[in-house]
Amino acid sequence: MKLAIDETRCKGCNLCTKVCPYHIFQAGKKPNKKGIVLPELDRPERCANCRLQYLYGRTLCGVCQLTCPDQAIHWVDEEPYEPMKVAIEY
């Protein structure tokens, strides 16, 4: 699974940057065509839901998706699925 921001929906409020426990969402710098500054993803492979949703069979954490007022955050299946080495930060 991979985190994705839907560019057609995001309005650039940056609320996601406040709620992610791993601080994966970082305030962006460059406005897109609509003039909206989308947040950038910092090493999104750290997201617990990305890694463990298949294992647990349910959404873990998911606070960014719940909080996103514009329904712009979701997870997409990675094709092909590539297991990634993850450095756990304490």
């Binding site: 409020c13 940056n14 719940l66 007022p69 514009d70 329904q71």
Partner: peptide, 17 residues
Amino acid sequence: LPHIFCAGCGNGTIINC
């Protein structure tokens, strides 16, 4: 979608919940 709420409006969050 996207809905008419302003950027940063909390209403979308409540719909999600």
